[in-house]
């Protein structure tokens, strides 16, 4: 994806550029509102990440000016967790918003969601290594052997499989699988992953569901490491 980041805080801008770049995106950077608006109008981006507090003209004004000409998807970054900000941002035409401090993974997930938007539906069958998933029948097999999953375990597996290779944080998983959009102190996701793993990976040799410590979980086929 081609992404524009409008952010005046150099450290934030720097890690966003580096992180998104390493994820294979092409990233442009603007340090103030005027520069950001100029780039946003001149260049066609897939997504714009726009900070609300900017020198020059602020994020809201940039967004309003942009929306007069273009419908590029915009994710707003705000430091003030005020409902007013959200309402104002969404009214002004933002597609999504994140409140600082936000996690990079969460930003990635939102970007993927925006990029996925409007794209055709997933194929009904997914295949990762010897794992086969039928999304319509809500059934999964590994090595031809049917996995006996509960409804939630299947939903978790399907969510991870649709985003294979993508690290999903616990918060994102809770939102996608349980439609829970608040931070819970409960270790629901850990326990659910542990249970899924006991059915998905433990009976079979190669693990597919990996924990990325401190970040979240990813479902992918990894090359077996040399012993």
């Amino acid at each position: 994806m081609k992404i524009l980041i409008v952010e005046d805080e150099p450290k934030t801008a720097d890690y966003l550029r580096r992180g998104l770049g390493e994820q294979g995106h092409v990233v442009d950077l603007a340090g103030d509102g005027h520069g950001g608006l100029h780039l946003a109008l001149e260049v066609d981006y897939d997504v714009i990440v726009l900070d609300v507090m900017l020198p020059g003209i602020d994020g809201m004004a940039v967004l309003r000016a942009l929306r007069e000409r273009k419908q590029t998807p915009v994710i707003m970054l705000t430091a003030r967790d005020r409902i007013d900000d959200r309402v104002q941002g969404l009214h002004a035409g933002a597609d999504d918003y994140l409140v600082k401090p936000f996690s990079f993974l969460e930003l990635l997930a939102r970007l993927q969601a925006l990029a996925r938007r409007g794209r055709s539906q997933d194929a009904p069958q997914l295949r990762i290594g010897d794992l086969e998933i039928d999304l319509y029948a809500r059934k999964a097999w590994r090595g031809g052997q049917r996995l006996d999953l509960t409804a939630k375990e299947f939903a978790l597996l399907a969510t991870l499989a649709r985003r294979r290779g993508e690290i999903l944080s616990k918060t994102v998983i809770a939102e996608l699988v349980w439609d829970v959009n608040f931070d819970s102190d409960a270790n629901v996701v850990e326990v659910a992953v542990k249970r899924l793993r006991s059915k998905l990976d433990e009976p079979f040799g190669t693990p597919l569901l990996h924990t990325i410590r401190g970040m979240g979980y990813v479902l992918e086929l990894r090359e077996a490491r040399a012993p």
Partner: peptide, 13 residues
């Protein structure tokens, strides 16, 4: 019930 459902595995444990 939705929250209970979310906490199901934790309650179960």
């Amino acid at each position: 019930s939705k929250t209970v459902d979310f906490l199901e595995v934790v309650l179960d444990e």
